[in-house]
Design a protein around this nucleic acid. Structure first.
Lengths: 205, 205
DNA sequence: ATCCATCTCTTACGGCATGTCAAGGTTATG
DNA sequence: CATAACCTTGACATGCCGTAAGAGATGGAT
């Protein structure tokens, strides 16, 4: 009965059409929930080209579907951040890369702008909110040690603040008060100012 | 049937017990929804000491109740900001006052930390999200003209960013990662840095 | 080509929350 | 006290969630 991805299940053997259904459902959920976070299971199923019961065959509940979706999102986000060279580039550049990865991620997972979704299934599990902040925190701490960032504010707080700033900027875009380009520029500038970087990203060499 | 507070209705004559019920309902909603934003009408009614149908006698729908609650919140928030002297105090001090009013407001209306609530009934109407940012924006603009704040970033964006920063700080408190006192201090410091105020609040004289 | 396990679909049910309605009792106000 | 406004009870319709059983279709392996 649909164990999906709990934790450390021996990767149960699936038939190809089942795998295809699961992918279609997750993809449909990503898109449909990105537009309306309160879309019904029926809508998601229809968008995926299956019946509602098929969804329940793979995901025991709505929350379980959410969890799997968040899981997939976290994996993609982590992959994006892996390619961003957060640990090697100069801190200010790495920070800009971090934000850039965030923009690409949010364009693909707009549903994560709705904090109600991610806030609800809080019980442990690794969603972006548990995986990403520590990465950013480490980057900020490194910048504080190299003198690129101001060390007078806790790195954990700055990490939360930077992510929050990006959420704010994304919300401004979603509400039509800013274009995506302007929002990204303002967010970057504000982030640098917040972290105490005295100049533009490339000025840190 | 239950116009509650639409717009410019001739203040329909109500009986005193009706007024009492409405107040009890709004108060219960404020508290119950502050703890669990998805609480049912039944729970709210019970907490208010009335039946579910009585709630519907005054508020046609859940969204209408939300709207009335947001309306009341906006009024209280506006009153707090009126007492904050945003237009007279030195900009940096006024900004600190703004944040302080926000903290008091959020302690009374914790449900407004859940953006899903306020984001859903978007159709115009004056909720804090439509009333407060312009006030802050005006304050920031003033600070930019007096030279207290950096004028290189748009005031509207800075206003959104400051409010977002406070939301982030409040979320850190709600999740137990910061104490209320630390969060307020970090939020203030970050806000000043963001707005380009080179010193502490009182250093702007 | 055939068989079996697995998957999907259809149909159906129970539960819970929202919203509506009608009838009858209660309270405030003139 | 009499009336109108209000509250309560009970009942009902709807929509979404979650569950279940059985029939039919599909994939994978022999």
């Amino acid at each position: 009965m649909a164990d999906t991805l709990d934790t450390a299940t021996p990767a149960r053997r699936r038939r190809s059409d089942a795998r295809r259904s699961i992918d279609a459902i997750l993809n449909a959920a990503r898109i449909v929930l990105g537009e309306r976070a309160d879309a019904s299971m029926e809508e998601i199923a229809t968008a995926a080209g299956v019946t509602r019961q098929t969804v329940y065959a793979h995901f025991p509940s709505r929350d379980a579907l959410m969890a799997a979706l968040i899981e997939a999102a976290a994996a993609e986000y982590a992959a994006l951040l892996d390619d961003a060279g957060l640990d090697t580039a100069p801190p200010a550049d790495a920070l800009a890369q971090f934000l850039d990865a965030g923009w690409r991620f949010l364009r693909r997972y707009p549903l994560l702008l709705n904090p109600t979704v991610t806030r609800i299934h809080r019980p442990k599990s690794n969603d972006p909110h548990d995986v990403v902040p520590p990465l950013l925190e480490r980057l900020i701490r490194r910048g504080q040690q190299t003198g690129d960032f101001d060390p007078s504010l806790p790195a954990a707080w700055l990490a939360a603040a930077v992510i929050g700033l990006q959420h704010t900027a994304a919300a401004e875009v979603a509400d039509g008060r800013l274009t995506a380009a302007k929002a990204a520029a303002l967010c970057l500038e504000s982030t640098m100012r917040l972290c105490g970087s005295s100049g533009r990203p490339t000025a840190s060499r």
